[in-house]
Nucleic acid binder design. Structure first.
Lengths: 200, 200
DNA sequence: AATATCAGGTGACATTTGTCATTTCTTCCG
DNA sequence: CGGAAGAAATGACAAATGTCACCTGATATT
């Protein structure tokens, strides 16, 4: 019997997946969560065989949960199940070492099969992810990402300096570099580009 | 036996809902579609008792399909099933006269019940829709939205003037007004706020 | 010890952005 | 008709932004 945990913030899909997978004779859904923190806590407690994990969830995103599980060497295998084929997401998921990355645009009928494959030690990835466009690497350093994340919210240079304890000149130098790296013409466009690529 | 049609562009949810509702002893899913045009054509041909309809779909959105069905006095009842309760959507759906408006954030377990209620001549609406927060109206005029949409992509004032045939002073006045209306401190934050509220 | 490299920082500068008061020209309404 | 309301524009100003060349320490590398 394969025990499952599902983390997904859209209640209807969560419920539907749960009911459906529970019908499989060799699977049992032992827990569900609608946000990252709850998911992390429950998974550590329940140790399911496999976790289906959405990425964009409140409080803690699916990739962060997966990372934390690896850090704490939890035994549960993670399959990311997401709408987005953003380059950054996929890249990061692979680096973290998740056991599967499936798109919500795939057939549910394949899902149970994928879970069994993962249980058998294989890794499963949606074929769409093979496309090159999706593999573009994030050119931004960690600090640059942090700064751009704040800038994307509309924070001013001054507010950013206060949060990161940097001088305003330094922040502007970083933003200038970010703009250059992304081929943007100002911070707003840089934010739009990074967001669209999943680099934020 | 209640015959159903499901129109939903996220394949996994479409499949899951289909499989699940088909398990109900008194229901049968007789058709599915992943875009509006296909949905409209199939519904007219198959005349299902009830259609579950997503709003944001390619080619033709769910509200437009519902409107067209009413225009052609199709007998099928429509239940809108959508992710987010944008004020404009709900209002328009009511005007069109749909038989139900449910959020994907609701329980699937309620879904079959809702469908039966609709078959019995009642109308069903997610309770969340009564809450005021969701009724928050978009304070931006059409022109302001158009300008902010461009600004959110990082376009400069000059680029916006070129696209909308306005003077740069006018564009800046509009943006100033937008910033004021949204309580932001610059165009980037205004964009972030509008995006988060679904006003873009 | 000599030298790269890297995170930060400075200062100067040209542009862009945001704000405001004021103007012009329609259109619409009693 | 007269006035209200709207869309668009101007001009002037302070502040924020983006660019660039160059400085400073602290770690690494050889």
């Amino acid at each position: 019997m394969i025990t499952l945990f599902i983390a997904e913030d859209q209640r209807m899909l969560l419920g539907a997946l749960g009911s459906l997978l529970d019908l499989e004779p060799d699977m049992k859904v032992i827990g569900q969560a609608m946000n990252g923190e709850e998911a992390l806590a429950s998974i550590l407690e329940l140790s399911p065989d496999v976790c289906l994990m959405d990425i964009e969830m409140p409080l803690l995103n699916g990739l962060e949960v997966a990372e934390e599980l690896v850090k704490r060497s939890a035994a549960s295998k993670v399959i990311i199940l997401t709408t987005f084929a953003r380059p950054g997401y996929f890249e990061r998921a692979v680096k973290i070492g998740v056991h599967g990355y499936l798109l919500k645009d795939g057939e549910i009928d394949d899902l149970a099969g994928a879970i069994r494959k993962v249980m058998a030690g294989k890794r499963v990835f949606s074929p769409e992810l093979a496309i090159d466009v999706i593999r573009e690497e994030n050119p931004l350093t960690l600090k640059e990402q942090e700064i751009l994340r704040l800038a994307a919210l509309g924070k001013t240079t001054k507010e950013i300096t206060a949060e990161l304890y940097l001088s305003s000149g330094t922040v502007r130098n970083y933003i200038s570099e970010i703009i250059h790296k992304l081929g943007a013409k100002n911070r707003t466009e840089a934010a739009a580009i990074a967001q669209q690529k999943g680099w934020l």
